[in-house]
Amino acid sequence: MTAQVGAVPQAITKPVAVATTQRQRRLPLRRQFILQLVCLFIALTVLFPIMWIVSMAIDPRNISRPDGLTLIPPGASFAAFAQVIQQPTQNPVSFVQLAANSLFIAVIISTASVGVGVLAAYAFSRMAFRGRETLMIGVLAVLMLPAVATLAPLYVMLSKVQIGTFNLRDSLFGVALAVTSGQLPFAIWNMKGYIDTIPRDLEEAAAVDGAGKLQTFWHVILPLSTPVLAVTAFFGFIAGWTEFYFSWQFLDQPQSFTLAMALNGMVGQYGTTPWSQFAAFSILVALPVSVVYMFLQRYIVGGLAIGGVKG
């Protein structure tokens, strides 16, 4: 096997369907070399900020700012990570508390937008009913608006909801509601687009067997929509995990602050945080979602391709 690899390198890298139709071509060595250089250069530009942030994060000197480009600083350590996990900002809040707050928002947004949205997406995709056009335009119109467009009214409205000492605006639940306001239309649209591509044959077969709409939805559509459910839930999760503008505007008490708020505190013009700690914190925030994104990537890209073909 190993002896033959050199002879058929293309069959390995190419999708099977393409490989069968495409005749074997060899790239002249000169062109191969030039293209490799180009690709390598692009890879370096892509990786440059990442290398920079990683090298800062493991800088052991705890200096406020780096003084040059070093890939791996001498005596590299994870001290900055330990520091930001304990207390990332001047506020007496640990990383775990911040992460728990962001997680709370993320889970609410994610479950609410998918759970409520998928029912609507199914109706929009598969049913003919009065007012369908109007409602779809309504959803699309909201989709077009940036999240910031509802900041003022939501701030004002949620501030008015005061039960004893609890103010809905000054709570993580209030922030989650505000973000869901913008996330739900996106979720509906995203899932509708996917359900549109599921062939109707299975549903018709289910209908012949006497299944109602709800049974068809539950036993046919839902299982087939798993990829888009995962992707939509994940987008909702990212929206909550990295949420900045609503939490920065709404929340007053440090114990309910979120990750993005702490991050803002570290880079603002008054920021006195050593950059190594900022870098470590950024990595801790980005890593979980980045890793999951990598895994879900092909489904996300698949969704984009469908959108592209349909447009």
Partner: peptide
């Protein structure tokens, strides 16, 4: 099917 989404959106989006 639309009811949950419409209720939620009526309160936190359209209103």
């Amino acid at each position: 099917f639309l009811l949950p989404a419409l209720l939620v959106m009526a309160v936190i989006t359209f209103y």
